[in-house]
Amino acid sequence: MWSLSVALILLLVMTFLPTAYVIQQPGPVYNTLGEATTSDGEQVPLISIDGATTYPTEGSLDLLTVQVVGNRERTPSWFELAAAWFQPSRAVLPIDAVFPVGQTTEERNEQSAADMVDSQKEATAAALTELGYDIDARVTVYSVLDDSAADGILEKDDVILSADGRPVTDASSLREIVNEGGGDPVELVVERDGDELTLSVTPRESEVEGESTLLLGITLLHDYEFPFQVTIQLNNVGGPSAGMMFALGIIDTLTPGELNGGANVAGTGTISADGTVGPIGGIRQKMWGAVDAGATYFLAPETNCAEVVGHVPTGLRVFSVSELDDALDVLEAIRDDGDLDALPTCTAG
């Protein structure tokens, strides 16, 4: 009796002890061919296009989300963690992997919102490029970090045209130019309120993921000149992982017939303007979210395949994609009753 009493007391104490983990689980699923709810509670098309001919769609092209249970202010109890550990649709992660040390909740939300805006623009550029439109790219300053090298020099919404006389086409090209300078001042030509300015910024050395690099202290967005307006309405969802599904939804809306043959298809993956599909987080939870939403096919980034193998829920068929064209090939095979077995999938090793 004494042993049982002590055990119960210890279990009760553990319920209130803080933990260093959070729980990842499937979040809401959104059909890019369907409707979304605005902040005012109004139902509107998730993707709407003004200035171009659009066509009816059928079935679904679902984007998946992941919810995080817990934060630094309130972590899940040990009982909640134990329960989540035995559920395949949930994952227990160190809190530092989701909420980086030193990053405030406000900063995390701001970065997540910026990633979502950027992914929508990249998806639109990828879709329209696939359809044969010429797209002009612009690199825009989204924010300037306080006390950084660029603080007081660059401003939000500045368009960076060139650095040290070389055109800036994306964040990678600017990063390369800055680091090639070895710490010397970088001469930037920017467009601000319709005027061109020449500004000098001296980068500062910093450590990113264990490696020394030179930074200006800005976050960037890719902006584009599109031939018509594409609006993506999706509230309270952040991050870049919906990019590929946005692109497929735009293509389906702008082309006759059903891109997916009327089937229920889900998927995930970042996308860049050139159509490259990139990795995302929480893919196992997203596969379970796809099943719960009624999808029978799932498009997974090739770079996430190691996390997919051995964890595919029953009833879901997963295809591996590395480019937007790969995803279109899968949808074509589904639509035309093609040979699905001939398409790439995630395999062990």
Results as ranks from 00 to 15, higher is better:
Ala273Val: 03
Ala300Phe: 04
Asn260His: 09
Leu188Glu: 07
Gly282Tyr: 10
Val186Gln: 05
Gly239Val: 05
Ile283Arg: 07
Leu221Gln: 12
Gln285Thr: 11
Gly238Tyr: 04
Glu205Pro: 01
Pro256Tyr: 04
Leu234Gln: 09
Gly282Thr: 08
Ser206Tyr: 04
Val189Asp: 09
Leu220Phe: 06
Phe298Trp: 02
Thr270His: 09
Val189Leu: 14
Tyr224Phe: 15
Leu215Tyr: 02
Asn236Leu: 13
Gly257Thr: 10
Glu207Arg: 13
Leu215Thr: 10
Thr296Ser: 15
Ile280Thr: 05
Ala300Met: 06
Gly238Asn: 09
Ser206Glu: 13
Phe226Pro: 01
Asp223His: 14
Gly289Leu: 11
Gly181Arg: 07
Glu207Thr: 15
Tyr224Ser: 01
Pro203Ala: 11
Arg204Cys: 00
Asp292Lys: 12
Phe228Gly: 00
Met245Leu: 13
Asp274Trp: 09
Asp292Gln: 14
Ala300Ile: 02
His222Trp: 09
Ala290Pro: 01
Leu254Gln: 01
Leu254His: 03
Gln285Asn: 13
Glu225Thr: 12
Ile271Met: 06
Phe246Pro: 03
Gly210Ser: 07
Glu209Met: 12
Gly194Cys: 04
Val237Pro: 04
Glu209Trp: 08
Gly278Asp: 12
Gly267Ala: 06
Gly210Gln: 08
Gly267Tyr: 02
Glu225Ile: 07
Lys286Ser: 03
Trp288Pro: 00
Ala290Leu: 05
Leu220Val: 03
Glu196His: 06
Pro240Thr: 11
Ile218Tyr: 03
Ala263Tyr: 12
Leu259Asn: 04
Gln233Asn: 14
Leu216Trp: 02
Glu196Asn: 11
Asp223Ala: 15
Ala300Arg: 02
Asp252Gln: 11
Lys286Gln: 13
Ala290Trp: 00
Met287Pro: 02
Glu196Phe: 04
Val291Met: 14
Gly289Trp: 11
Val190Pro: 00
Asn236Gln: 15
Gly182Val: 09
Thr255Pro: 00
Met245Asp: 05
His222Gln: 14
Val237Thr: 08
Gly267Gln: 04
